[in-house]
Design a protein around this nucleic acid. Structure first.
Length: 297
DNA sequence: GGGATTTGACCATA
DNA sequence: TATGGTCAAATCCC
């Protein structure tokens, strides 16, 4: 998470606007980069590309700085929140526990990130599956994951994974809410939490077959592995069902050093290198945590 | 034995 | 009321 000091003095509304503007700038810079890629010869466009690269980096850093206080705010606001782990910890009152079953507040208006990928991706966070549901008119069930650190660090991030297309394979991963856990195993210089991303977006058609050179360039400094995630993805041919045995070619792509990344940098990196499309989302940006945690915007 | 996954039941929302 | 989201006991696996 950010080593940079957040823009704490900035009012939430202004900060939100600033982020929106920067996000817009990021998109425009991306368009410019695409134009440069299309229209100019390499030797001519190299300086321009370099410039664009710096502009994109600058926007990315700005977003990181502006967003980096989300977690501290969340944790501060979460003070006094009833412990998740206390739920059901006392097994001698089963009837009481059963009575409470399913009593929860459904999350809504959370920030959402959607990724459509031809293979499953390791986002660098540890997830625990907590449910699976057959979705109407969907060929494959949806799988529900929450952050492993939900109980010990009250991290509220969850994700849903669903196969939306079989041939060619297409997985839709929906990230909901921000990671508030501090267990980041990655290089803190490079990694920012999804919490840093202030604009929901849809990533479409991420190409898992980028070259090794590109992968090294993109990921080498970014990602060691998450033990649990790595294990999960290595031991499963069906990435959505980790318990099944493994030999899927798709899954071979999931070397953690190559595919582990955080969503925010995911956008930044792939924007910068022109891999995959970043499409701004239109989803509600508000937050409505069940324990009244709220982001400043 | 402890942590992760499975799965049926319950609840919220449209 | 149908559907999706979450819970938690049972089960599995290392």
């Amino acid at each position: 998470m950010g080593c940079s000091k957040p823009a704490e003095s900035l009012p939430a509304s202004k900060r939100k606007r600033a982020i929106e503007e920067i996000t817009k700038g990021l998109q425009l810079a991306n368009q410019l980069r695409s134009l440069l890629n299309d229209s100019l010869e390499d030797d001519v466009s190299a300086p321009a590309k370099d410039l664009i690269f710096k502009v994109l980096s600058s926007f990315t850093n700005s977003l990181t700085i502006l967003s980096s206080d989300d977690v501290s705010q969340l944790q501060a606001n979460a003070h006094g929140h009833k412990s998740e782990s206390s739920r059901g910890s006392c097994r001698n009152d089963i009837s009481t526990i059963k009575d409470r079953r399913g009593r929860y507040k459904r999350r809504k208006n959370l920030q959402v990130w959607i990724r459509d990928t031809p293979c499953l991706i390791d986002d660098g966070h540890a997830w625990r599956k907590y449910g699976q549901k057959v979705i109407l008119n969907a060929e494959h069930p949806r799988h529900y994951y929450k952050c492993t650190h939900k109980s010990d660090q009250r991290c509220r991030a969850i994700k849903h994974v669903q196969i939306i297309q079989k041939d060619p394979p297409k997985y839709r991963t929906t990230y909901i809410g921000h990671h508030t856990c501090k267990t980041f195993l990655y290089d803190p210089r490079s990694i920012s939490d999804p919490a840093s991303e202030d604009s929901p977006f849809v990533l479409e058609s991420f190409d898992c077959t980028i070259t090794a050179g590109e992968q090294n360039h993109l990921f080498t400094s970014y990602f060691p592995s998450t033990k649990q995630e790595h294990k999960e993805e290595k031991t499963s041919s069906n990435p959505i069902n980790p318990k099944q045995s493994s030999s899927s070619p798709d899954y071979d792509l999931l070397s953690p050093s190559h595919t582990t990344f955080d969503s925010f940098d995911y956008e930044a990196i792939f924007s910068e290198f022109g891999i995959g499309d970043v499409i701004p989302g239109v989803m509600d940006m508000g937050l409505d945590f069940e324990d009244d945690i709220s982001l400043p915007f």
